[in-house]
Design a protein around this nucleic acid. Structure first.
Lengths: 240, 240
DNA sequence: GGTGCGCAGATTGTATACGATCCTGTGTCC
DNA sequence: GGACACAGGATCGTATACAATCTGCGCACC
């Protein structure tokens, strides 16, 4: 009998009395998607996920519905849940939405950032570099996303920050599907420049840098029509 | 331009059978909140809601979690679900987010609107006026929100449209809590002007009108600190 | 008379059971 | 030999059952 899989309550350490374990499962799955350990199109069977986390299907369903709302998974009725495969169109939309939200948010962040905020961002970048050097590509990608989310948090706009969080998550899937170039270095440098602008309280520059950064990101994708159908030939034929 | 399949008709609520009943219940509740038949702070007991809709608590829970994700209800662990009561701060954030998203979206919509789109919008306004004259204030408010959502749909940006949909929903709660003036007429006129700009394909004007419209809306609210605590003195003491 | 405690009812959190639907593999018929 | 039909298994959708927790009220005690 294998001990590590034992689904008892105090496996998770401390039950902080917070929200149900559904949130916990959802966070784990989200993180796995961010780190590209779960790739687009992978099936998330309720039984399987439930057994892994030691919870019942009730919890898993709640978690999956939550991820479905964030559009990280798609739930096909009577078929199951799959990690989402954003179409080329969705990919464009995600980055257009980011281009609409993030530059202004970066400007606000520059005007409000405290020294502690700057320190936090600096630590993020350091972790990102470390992960990159350790060859942990997925972790680096997730940290890179967290950098953007942290900026939204600094801007002190919880509502917009939540939207940006969703968009960053979906960007991770987009990158998994459509990434072309291998040089993630430019991104790190972009983050360095952004950090400097924020530290200097230069809102206009931060806005401009963020805009350019997002455009760079977008241009590093291969968003032609064909590759979107890599695994979705069913829906390619099913549609009109 | 005329697609035979007509996939993007404004079908709302006729979706029985396809998706799970949870979506149905969630839509009903959402509509009730939009029409101010459910006010901020009202408790949504799982048993009660389930009995009303003739479904089990399983379905109700799924629906409530969905609304919680849209921040239309807040779920307090072991206490239940309540219609959300946006704080003054949240109210401001909602309108700041709208100010960031909707003007640009209106501009895009103006550039893309087809004659059918204009006709749909015209019908929306007519319905809104009719509801207003019939004294159905709640229905008029909901239609007013649908007008904004329809514009986002016309702009052909599903991702942004979904965000705007969430924000419009939350705005309904904000209005329920903080509405000051009684004259909803200005809003209708604003919509008329917007419609004209869209029909004229005047993107710049549409953007400007939308910006002004949102500012008008915001200025018609009473967002001083006091009224936020109307029912939330518990959380006033709970927080710093 | 006011305050604190404890029990009962109600409500939510989670698990499990059962029916419905879909996918897959096999057998038969043309 | 190929295509259709059907059965088996697996998975999902929903309902119900049980356990944990909270709220309200009454009673004892100070």
């Amino acid at each position: 009998m294998n001990q590590p899989g034992l689904p008892t309550a105090h496996v998770a350490g401390r039950d902080s009395g917070r929200a149900s374990r559904a949130r916990e499962v959802a966070d784990s799955l989200t993180r796995a998607i961010h780190e590209h350990r779960l790739g687009p199109g992978m099936k998330l069977s309720e039984d399987e996920v439930g057994e892994i986390f030691g919870v019942s299907r009730t919890i898993v369903r709640a978690a999956l519905q939550q991820l479905a709302h964030d559009q990280l998974v798609t739930i096909e009725p009577h078929r199951g849940a799959f990690v989402a495969q954003p179409s080329v169109r969705e990919a464009r939309e995600v980055f257009e939405a980011r281009a609409l939200l993030e530059p202004r948010t970066a400007r606000s962040a520059a005007l409000r950032a405290t020294p502690e905020d700057i320190a936090i961002l600096r630590r993020h970048i350091a972790q990102e570099h470390a992960a990159l050097h350790a060859g942990q590509d997925g972790a680096a990608l997730r940290l890179s996303g967290l950098f953007h989310i942290e900026i939204a948090r600094i801007a002190d706009q919880a509502t917009i920050a939540e939207f940006i969080g969703q968009l960053v998550s979906r960007s991770s899937l987009v990158i998994a599907l459509y990434w072309r170039r291998r040089n993630a270095l430019c991104e790190s440098h972009a983050h360095d420049a952004l950090l400097k602008a924020l530290a200097d309280r230069d809102g206009a520059l931060a806005e401009e840098l963020m805009k350019g950064h997002l455009l760079d990101l977008l241009s590093s994708l291969d968003l032609r029509e064909a590759p979107g159908q890599r695994r979705s030939l069913k829906e390619a034929l099913g549609g009109p």
